[in-house]
């Protein structure tokens, strides 16, 4: 028996919208720790890892570990039927091939029930080691989204370079080239507007902009994004979900032939 209640139901909508661009079907794992997911995109270049900790839910009951294969577009269709202020309760049963969503309006005058079919998914789990990164950039998530969108209209790849000057995003395409430098800036009115660059070693890596743009679908989840870079590792683009957990995207770099 599984029962999760989230008063801030819109959060679940945002989570599904953040990842469904990258993966179509995914296996959600439920345990005492929380509601989690790890899924790779179909070309095995990018991976998404989601964690919503049990403490973040208003009610969390998970009698035993359970994995549920879900189609994210179908999930989005169901969640779109919830109002933005609705309370969402998610229920599942061992051995059942469906799960249910219940949406309650804040005033309790409308209650909707949706049942969604589960899917059989062969999920591969990758072991992601803890790592020390050469550089960690924290910046406003909207700024990062803007940069990826702007560069995506000029080139296909972005070179992200971190030096003591700051972080530089560069691209090159048929029409020309572009460089955007963001300097460390903590002199701001609100902490979410700050850009910080933590650098142990300078690092420069190249990534496909298509994936970066897909990661930015998670922007509504967090004011800040954290980009962790090391020359021997995939980049991690992390959106923290306040009091609950995170969505992390991993992307393997491109290398020069």
């Amino acid at each position: 028996m599984l029962e999760l209640r989230l008063v801030q139901g819109s959060l679940l909508k945002k989570v599904v919208d953040a990842i469904r661009d990258l993966v179509n079907d995914a296996s959600f794992d439920c345990s005492a720790t929380g509601f989690s997911l790890q899924a790779m995109d179909s070309s095995h270049v990018a991976l998404v890892a989601l964690l919503l900790r049990s403490e973040g839910f208003d009610h969390y009951r998970c009698d035993r570990n359970i994995s549920m294969g879900m189609n994210l577009n179908n999930m989005a269709k169901m969640l779109r039927c919830a109002g933005n202020d609705d309370i969402i309760t998610f229920k599942g049963d061992d051995g059942s091939d469906t799960v249910s969503f219940m949406f309650e309006s804040p005033t309790q005058d409308k209650i909707s029930d949706f049942e969604m079919k589960l899917m059989d998914i062969d999920s591969e789990r990758l072991g992601i080691p803890e790592a020390k990164y050469q550089a960690i950039v924290r910046m406003p998530s909207t700024e990062f989204a803007r940069i990826c969108k702007d560069l995506g209209s000029i080139g296909d790849t972005v070179v992200i370079s971190v030096t003591k000057e700051g972080v530089k995003f560069s691209t090159r395409g048929d029409i020309g080239s572009a460089n955007i430098v963001c300097r460390q800036n903590t002199d701001v009115d609100k902490p979410e507007q700050a850009t910080t660059v933590e650098m142990n070693d300078p690092v420069s890596l190249t990534f496909a902009l298509r994936y970066m743009n897909s990661f930015t679908k998670a922007t509504p989840l967090s004011n800040q994004v954290t980009i962790s870079l090391s020359s021997e590792l995939p980049v991690v683009v992390e959106y923290k979900i306040a009091e609950m957990g995170y969505v992390r995207f991993y992307l393997a770099p491109k290398i020069e032939e």
Partner: peptide
């Protein structure tokens, strides 16, 4: 010319 590396190069299957 760039080649795209795949994730399995870095993260082993468990």
């Amino acid at each position: 010319l760039y080649i795209q590396i795949i994730l399995w190069t870095y993260f082993p299957n468990t």
